[in-house]
Design a protein around this nucleic acid. Structure first.
Lengths: 348, 348
DNA sequence: GTGAAAGCGCTAACAA
DNA sequence: TTGTTAGCGCTTTCAC
């Protein structure tokens, strides 16, 4: 790596002159500026970012901790994060907690040693279950700007970006009811997550509002008392979950619609419904989570509630960088709610 | 952030003493070491990584450039990369070129300014198509250790990690032939990529070896003359590709097996076959790419050729860090081939 | 056993 | 217009 010093020596000027010339300083003569910059490009000189960081106490780097990159939702979030960060001149250092609290703590430690200007965090499932957030409090005490996304907690004060899980399901029930559906089922494999709870609550509230009651028989909880990694274990889906969904569809009297609360159940429901020779969507409407691409994998194509994950990522970055740049230690934190939208497919 | 200087002042010793004490130096008395470390933990002191980097000229950070994080294969690669990097004490800075060469160039520039100790790269589709690699040569000239994975080129000398695309398909044809299949079809949506070519070649060679000829009628090329982003456009899959596969299955006389060269075609083939009331795998064996989880989304479950993406990621990191640590500028580069394996599902 | 000083690459106040 | 100097936080050689 070529340094200012070497350029200076080569040109018989001082280091500071070279520095200023590289920064197009007014102080330096056009002639010198040209000479310096010419040689710089010739030798492929690049400012040393590390030195800049040490000097300026800014790294222009964001730390990103996500629970699971193999979950397509978070892959999309990360995609949005990278694009937005890049646009605003930041790099990102990424970590995946694999739903483990101890990993989350480790990563927060690494991140706390001056490598990043701010942190983007979606909590691990374990952290959420243990309801224990002191490791995150350390961060905020440290005055490191923090934005939490999707998997959040009330216990920590910071900017947050989430989707309207409750409303998403509530509105979906409402919409199906308007279409004339009378017996709307609800399948969830994520009832142990707070987002899963919000979705169940949305379903329950809407059921009461539009049908006068919430029939527990219409709710299928998959993989309760277990955890996400288990859910993502395809073996589980192939055997137990597959069977449960099949029985649910076959045996629930009058079932004319299904809302699935997670990415996979909806696709399974459509494929299983088709296999049972049910006319979808004529006799059974199905709506799930996911996106255009994954919803292609059911036949007919699953109609989905789009969570706009990319936008969540982008918005989180924008909030974080805004927070980084406002030196004020004001603590008027915002919680932004990204609206979902339903569409695509032909299963509704 | 608390610094050595502050600790030193607090304890009335010099900065160098504190530094040594923190590093458990033999020079320092046990008493002092204890006093220093006690205060350090009390004040939550953390070594400033940036300063360390500047001093040591090592960042303990790896740059990772992948074509597309929304592609599950690369998501798994990244997962493996992060785990292996962490184990070896490295952080990762991630970029997604979105199949664009200019993005790839940008990222290589960013990375070239002293932020990383080495680079992990899977080429963008555009770069591969344009067959233009000078931006990568700059990197190697710069003596930055580089490992290329999956999407590679002969034009650049460096360590490489790939899968045995040719053999994977060749062996699959062989295996199906052994099972008694006579007319094995091949569906590909990635013939414009080098990996896609390797897979086609494997199919062709095996066809000739085991059936005496390669019947072009048995090959379905989807989305040729287009690009990856197009392929991943679900609209395309829903309409054109879906129809093509349906016609291919319905109209190819004697078709008794299908090998799909990309992640999506195989799942579609199974679902379309089922819809056409074909008994899978009795009358039609189908094998595709993908993994356990995605293959769940077809019914019956798709049997897949596992690319061991996580292992590719891990192995790349190991090679890269080995290269970083060997100061020798020897250029005996290795190309590691990760073996694929076929299994799971019930469509074969 | 402890401290002073130099230096990693850069910027910026100040001096010339 | 250019150069000198100090300093960002740390390690390390060399004195004491």
């Amino acid at each position: 790596m070529i340094t200012l010093k070497q350029l200076a020596k080569e040109l018989n000027v001082s280091v500071s002159t070279v520095s200023k010339a590289m920064n197009n300083s007014e102080e330096i003569s056009t002639d010198t500026i040209n000479r310096v910059q010419k040689l710089a490009t010739e030798l492929n000189y690049k400012r040393n970012k590390i030195a800049l960081s040490l000097k300026s106490n800014k790294t222009l780097t964001l730390g990103v901790i996500l629970p699971d990159i193999l979950n397509r939702f978070y892959a999309k979030v990360l995609y949005g994060v990278q694009i937005a960060a890049e646009e605003l001149g930041y790099d990102i250092i990424t970590f995946f907690s694999r739903e483990s609290m101890s990993k989350e703590i480790d990563y927060l430690q690494i991140i706390g040693s001056g490598t990043v200007d701010g942190v983007l965090l979606a909590l691990s499932e374990e952290t959420l279950n243990k309801n224990e957030f002191s490791h995150i409090k350390d961060l905020t005490l440290n005055n490191t700007p923090l934005v939490m996304l999707d998997r959040i907690t009330d216990k920590i004060s910071c900017d947050k970006v989430i989707i309207d899980d409750f409303d998403a399901i509530y509105n979906e029930v409402k919409s199906l009811a308007k279409m004339g559906r009378k017996r709307i089922g609800f399948i969830t494999a994520i009832n142990n997550l707070n987002v899963g709870q919000f979705r169940s609550n949305g379903y329950r509230k809407a059921s009461i509002d539009f049908f006068g009651k919430c029939d527990e028989e219409l709710i299928l909880k998959l993989a309760h008392q277990t955890n996400i990694s288990h859910i993502q274990n395809s073996e589980y889906y192939r055997t137990s979950a597959h069977k449960s969904i099949e029985q649910f569809i076959a045996n629930t009297a009058g079932l004319d619609a299904i809302i699935a609360a997670d990415n996979i159940s909806g696709i399974l429901a459509v494929n299983i419904g088709s296999k049972l020779n049910i006319d979808i969507p004529k006799d059974l409407s199905i709506v799930g989570f996911g996106d255009k691409l994954t919803s292609m994998l059911s036949h007919p194509q699953l109609t989905t509630i789009n969570q706009h994950a990319v936008q969540i990522g982008k918005r989180s970055v924008e909030l974080l960088i805004k927070r980084i740049n406002s030196k004020s230690t004001d603590n008027s934190f915002v919680t932004e709610i990204i609206q979902t939208s339903t569409g695509g497919g032909s299963s509704k």
